[in-house]
Design a binder for these strands. Structure first.
Lengths: 138, 138
DNA sequence: GCTTGACCTCAAGTTGACTTGAACTTTTAT
DNA sequence: ATAAAAGTTCAAGTCAACTTGAGGTCAAGC
């Protein structure tokens, strides 16, 4: 398939496909002239990438999961990630319940609603961003 | 409390607190000299921000939820967001199960494992990034 | 055989959420 | 009184994940 067929089948723009290829997340099987040719299973790969992205993995992390040859995708890493997802799911569930409650609650501000405030306590600790990398000293 | 007390209590760096203030997400109650003074409930606010961030809301969206005076936080918006979270929760659950399975599965490649492939189909469609905004024409 | 449109490359721009740095002012500690 | 520590502003930098743009190539249809 050529790149437009992939864009149609996957919904991703060509620029993204080229970008993913450059990152090593997908591979084109060859060229006709300049044009990339992809084999059908790139779609499966893209689906997996989409899934992993949805689960909060970064492209780099996804790249590492697809170790070029490694049959040994680090299993403890996978389990750790699964646990992380469990925590995340709990958080999202709390937030969802909070929203549903907020939609019917008539406290003047949600901050004044005890139900809502309890949620804050429940779903506390989660870091979103790592500190910027400091430049390594030589 | 001054800004360092807030950083200690919240775990957020001072730069973030200033940034949030500039964005209108939190407010300092006054100054001593140049220095900001915060009242204790900023911590609650920060907890809520953290929760909402964790649930995937952008800072701008969070800002809108804290409408300055609006008693009428658009309830349908809240419910829509809750539904969105439900979908996300399903996705994460699928991914989590996929990871747990992958950790014990001994198919040569996860792509070759039918259980895993089924997941791909299940948890398909989710957009992560909106198209860049095109500059509005005058 | 030539135009046209799909594709290409490569560099630079974009967005969100912050962080970092430089230069300055205050408080606090000696 | 004075220096260090902690705070401030404002502009610029960073990072991920892409997108956009300029300029070039090439196969396909007329």
């Amino acid at each position: 398939m050529d790149i437009t067929e992939v864009t149609k089948a996957s919904g991703l723009p060509a620029s993204t496909l080229r970008f993913y290829e450059e990152k090593g997340l997908i591979r084109s099987t060859g060229r006709i002239g300049l044009r990339r040719i992809f084999s059908g299973d790139v779609l499966e790969r893209l689906a997996l990438i989409a899934l992993a992205r949805g689960a909060g993995f970064s492209l780099d992390e996804i790249g590492e999961m697809f170790t070029p040859e490694g049959p040994d995708i680090d299993r403890t890493l996978l389990l750790a990630k699964a646990d992380e997802l469990d925590r995340k799911i709990n958080e999202l569930t709390a937030m969802r319940d909070g929203l549903r409650h907020a939609a019917v609650c008539n406290a003047p501000s949600h901050f004044e609603c005890p139900k809502f405030r309890r949620l804050l306590r429940v779903a506390g600790k989660h870091r979103f961003r790592q500190p910027n990398k400091l430049k390594d000293k030589i």
